[in-house]
């Protein structure tokens, strides 16, 4: 009897065999954690590409913006494109400016406030785009080990029930169940560790990009307010 049990216990200890031996709950946990890991890495790749692209665009836009080119010309070239980040803020501010002047704005203070608000909205939208899906990274990073641990506990419970059933405390009987249970925790950690690292890194990157956009928005707001003063003063003088 004991030899039969030994053979059954030692015949296959590969990862696939461990997965197939696992119970329903442990299997579900492991599959869920595998999807979480896939999702984590998808987000990581996506964010990496997006942030790199955003950073490049910011650099290009700043270079063009401070090159002394006319804002009107820059607006005309950018208006038709789908803009991201700083360019989007610039375009939204310029659009508001254009609309106000085309309809003949009376109050320079009201115009300034409208431009600031338009830029804030765009900035918030852009920042939200940067931080999108980073929350799920945080969730996976914090909950992954717990989910894996849950699978482990269930698996060990099952294997101990099996020990009680077989009435044999031979290590060869106990070991596969524990190994299969520990596989769940391993997958949980595999999913959670990159998630935590990526979350911290991309949160920092998103904060930096947002700060850069805010800085640009403030600067552009200052430029526009000067322009408003310069353009509205002759009209007021002419009116008087």
């Amino acid at each position: 009897m004991e030899q039969v049990a030994l053979e059954a216990a030692t015949h296959d200890v590969s990862l696939w065999a461990l997965f197939m031996q696992a119970g329903f709950i442990v299997k579900a946990v492991m599959i869920g954690l595998m999807f979480a890991s896939v999702w984590t890495w998808a987000i990581v790749i996506d964010k990496y590409i997006n942030f790199a692209k955003a950073k490049r665009q910011f650099d290009q836009f700043e270079q063009v913006f401070w090159s002394g080119q006319s804002l009107e010309e820059l607006y005309r070239t950018l208006a038709d494109r789908q803009n991201v980040g700083m360019a989007a803020i610039f375009v939204s501010a310029m659009r508001e400016w254009k609309k106000s002047f085309e309809r003949g704005a009376r109050s320079p203070i009201g115009l300034q406030m409208r431009i600031d608000r338009a830029m804030d909205v765009t900035l918030a939208r852009e920042a939200e785009g940067f931080e999108a899906r980073l929350g799920s990274l945080a969730t996976i990073g914090s909950a992954g080990p717990f989910i894996g641990l849950f699978g482990t506990v269930i698996g060990i419970m099952t294997s101990f029930q099996a020990i009680a059933g077989s009435k044999s405390t031979n290590l060869a009987v106990v070991a596969p169940g524990i190994a299969e249970a520990l596989l769940a925790t391993a997958i949980g950690l595999v999913a959670a560790i990159p998630a935590v690292i990526a979350y911290n890194k991309f949160m920092g990157d998103a904060g930096k990009l947002s700060a850069r956009m805010e800085g640009f928005a403030d600067e552009f707001s200052g430029i526009l307010s000067r322009q408003i003063d310069e353009k509205l003063q002759p009209r007021q003088q002419a009116a008087q």
Binding site: T10, S14, L15, W16, V38, W41, A42, I43, V44, I45
Partner: peptide, 28 residues
Amino acid sequence: MKTSLGTSFALHSAALAFALVSIGAPAP
């Protein structure tokens, strides 16, 4: 996002296949 999701999935399948082949059955 779809491309990155696809990339991630492909990477995971590759890693799993590698794990099953190389560290699949530890030497008894």
